[in-house]
Nucleic acid binder design. Structure first.
Lengths: 337, 337
DNA sequence: CTGAAAGCGCTAACAT
DNA sequence: ATGTTAGCGCTTTCAG
C-alpha cells in the first residue's frame, strides 16, 4: 500500500502538503493541489485510517449496543442511527448483548480500547458499564432505556403513557380482568410500562392484582410461558397487555394453541409494533413506537455532543401511538383500520 | 488514559516487558508478571487498540456489508456472523447498502481505510467493489449472492432447487398458471430462483411465459406492484412464486386489497421465511433458508482464511426447506403443519 | 529473560 | 504557503 510519503515524493511536495490537500483544511497552491491529486490517482493511494486515528486520538466509529439484533424494534432503530452516522462520516459497529451484562461489559471494553468516538446504548441492566465509558470521557447516548443515576443524553418514548392508553383501551372494549406481561425487572421500560398499566386500572377504580402480572424476558418463548402461567390462574384474565413485540407474538401463539379465541374470549394489546401486525389474523392492536426516529434522534444527539462536548445532557421523549386493530375489539366495536 | 509506559514505570520494568505480559507470547519471569499485572490493575490500564493496530498493521474488525438491515433475513444472518466473530475476538461493523452500488463502494473504501481484517458481503451488483478488496489483500467472503468472475470463499443456499420445489408444489396443488416475481436482474439469487421456477414448469411440459414473470426489487412495495401488474394481465395467474420474503408480504397485501382469496383463488409461496409466517392468516408457505447458519458459516470461513490465508477458496451450499402452510394448498389437501 | 530503540502512517506544531 | 520534524502508543527486532 502506498503511503503519504510515496504520494509526496511523486508529487514533489512534502508529506505535510499532501495531508493538507487530503484534508482540505489549510489552503494550498492550486498547482500543488493538482499534482498531489494526480499522484494520489496514479498510486491509488488510500489513507490509512488507523494511523490517522492514532495521531488524532479519535476514530470515526460509533458503537451501538443493543440487547437483541433479532428484534425488529432494534433493527429499525439501528437503521435510523446508521443513516445519520453515514451522513456525518461515522461507521456503526453493531454490538448485540442478548441482555447479558457480561457481554455488554466486553463490548464496552472494546469500545474503550478501540477509542470509539461515541456509544449509543440500550442498557442491559445497572449503570456500571456506562459509568466506565463516562469516566473515560466517551460520549454516551442512552436509547430506549433510562440509566439510573447517570447524566447522559437520552432518547425515550412515553412508555407509561403508551401502556396506560393500551390498558384503558382494553377496559373500554369491555374486558374485565386485564393482565400484564412485562419485561425484566431491571429494565426501565418494563417498569414504566407496568406502571402505566397499573395507573390505567387505578383510574377505573380497579385494584391491580399481582396474580395478573408476570415479569418475563422480552422474548417470544417468555411471552408464551407467561401467558400459559396466567391461564393457569384460578381466575384467569380475559385480556392481556404485553409489554413488548416478541412476547406479544408468544402470548398470541399460546392462546391459539389453547384454542382461546382472540378477541372474543381474550383481548390482546402489545407494546411496540411488529412489521406485519396487520397481516396477522386477527390483526394485532399495538402501541407503535417511532423506532426509526428513536435511532435517528439518538444519532443526532451523539453527533451534536461530539461537535460540542460541554453542553448539558438532554432527554428527548418521543410519542407512541395506539394502533387499534382486531385483537382488542369485541364484535360490537370494529376497528376502523 | 494510562499508557504502557506508565505501567512499565510503576512496575519497574520496560514497556517491552509489559507488552509481553499483556500478550502472553514470550515467557516472562513470574515475579515481573505479577508486578505488571498489579500496575495494570492500579492504573486501570487499557491498551490502546488503535496504536496496536497501527503497529501490527491489522485490526480486529470485520465489515458485514448487506443490502437491507430491515430485512429479517439479513439480521438473522448478521447474528450468526456476530456470534462467531465475538468468540474469535473480532467485532462486527454493520454496513447497510440499500442495494446501492455507490453506497457499497463507500463502505468498501471505509473497510480498506480502516484496515479491516475481513469483509463478509452480499453484493449489490457487479464485482468491481469486491475486486478492490481482493487487490488490497483483504479477505472476502461472499454470502447469499455469488460474485461473477471472482474467486472467493462463498456461502450460498440451493436457490434454484428451492425455487423449483416451491413451483412444483404449486403445480401439485392444482394451480395452472403459476407466475413468478423475482428480484433485481443483477442479483444472482434473483436469476437462480427464476431459473428454478422455469425448470419446474419445463419438467411438467409447461411453457414459461414472460407475461407471468416480473423482475422487482426485493422490497415490500415492489412485491405489491409486481402482483398488481400480474393481475392486470389478460390471462392473470392463479398462483405466484415470490422470490423473497418482503416481496411476498407485498404480494399478499395486494391480493388482500383486491379481495382475492388465498389460497382458494390464488396460491402463494414465498422464498425465505418471515418470522411470523405461521401467525399470518392464511399462514404462508415458504422456502425457509438457514439464515443464522449462513452467517455462522461465512464467519467461520473468514476466521479460517484469516488463520490460513493461502488455502484455496471454497464454496459452501446450504439447504433450503419447503415449509408447506396454508397459502398454497387448496381445500382438498390441508397442510399438516 | 529483559531492555533499548526503531518505526507503523499520519498530522500538527513550528520554522521558514 | 510550504517544509521539517516530533510523536500518537504500541510491538518487535536486535543486543545484551
Amino acid at each position: 500500500m502506498a503511503t503519504i510519503y510515496d504520494v509526496a515524493e511523486r508529487a514533489g511536495v512534502s508529506p505535510a502538503t499532501v495531508s493538507r490537500v487530503l484534508n482540505g483544511r489549510s489552503t494550498v497552491d492550486g498547482e500543488l493541489v493538482a499534482r498531489v491529486q494526480k499522484a494520489v490517482q496514479e498510486l491509488e493511494y488510500r489513507p490509512n485510517a488507523v494511523a490517522r486515528n492514532l495521531r488524532r486520538s479519535r476514530t470515526t466509529l460509533w458503537a451501538v449496543i443493543i440487547s437483541d439484533v433479532g428484534n425488529p424494534f432494534f433493527t429499525s432503530l439501528v437503521r435510523g442511527v446508521e443513516d445519520v452516522a453515514q451522513r456525518a462520516g461515522y461507521s456503526v459497529v453493531l454490538c448485540n448483548t442478548d441482555e447479558d451484562i457480561a457481554k455488554e461489559g466486553r463490548y464496552v471494553s472494546a469500545a474503550l480500547e478501540e477509542q470509539m468516538a461515541g456509544v449509543i446504548i440500550s442498557v442491559a441492566g445497572r449503570s456500571a458499564n456506562v459509568t466506565r465509558l463516562i469516566e473515560a470521557g466517551t460520549p454516551v447516548v442512552a436509547i430506549d432505556r433510562e440509566i439510573a443515576g447517570v447524566q447522559v443524553d437520552t432518547v425515550l418514548v412515553d412508555n407509561a403513557h403508551g401502556a396506560e392508553l393500551a390498558t384503558t383501551h382494553l377496559l373500554d372494549s369491555g374486558y374485565q380482568r386485564v393482565a400484564c406481561i412485562t419485561g425484566p425487572r431491571k429494565v426501565s421500560t418494563a417498569a414504566q410500562r407496568l406502571k402505566g398499566y397499573q395507573r390505567a386500572l387505578r383510574a377505573r377504580g380497579i385494584a391491580a392484582r399481582d396474580a395478573l402480572v408476570r415479569y418475563s424476558d422480552y422474548r417470544e418463548e417468555g411471552g408464551y410461558e407467561a401467558m400459559a402461567s396466567l391461564l393457569g390462574e384460578a381466575d384467569p384474565p380475559d385480556a392481556v397487555f404485553v409489554a413488548n413485540n416478541l412476547m406479544t407474538v408468544g402470548a398470541v401463539e399460546c392462546l391459539v394453541d389453547r384454542g382461546i379465541a382472540i378477541p372474543a374470549e381474550t383481548g390482546v394489546v402489545g407494546f411496540d409494533d411488529i412489521p406485519w401486525a396487520h397481516l396477522v389474523r386477527p390483526s394485532l392492536t399495538t402501541v407503535a413506537q417511532p423506532t426509526y426516529e428513536l435511532g435517528r434522534t439518538a444519532a443526532m444527539l451523539l453527533a451534536e455532543r461530539l461537535a460540542e462536548p460541554t453542553r448539558a445532557p438532554s432527554t428527548v421523549t418521543l410519542h407512541t401511538q395506539l394502533k387499534v386493530r382486531e385483537s382488542s375489539t369485541r364484535s360490537a366495536e370494529r376497528p376502523r383500520q
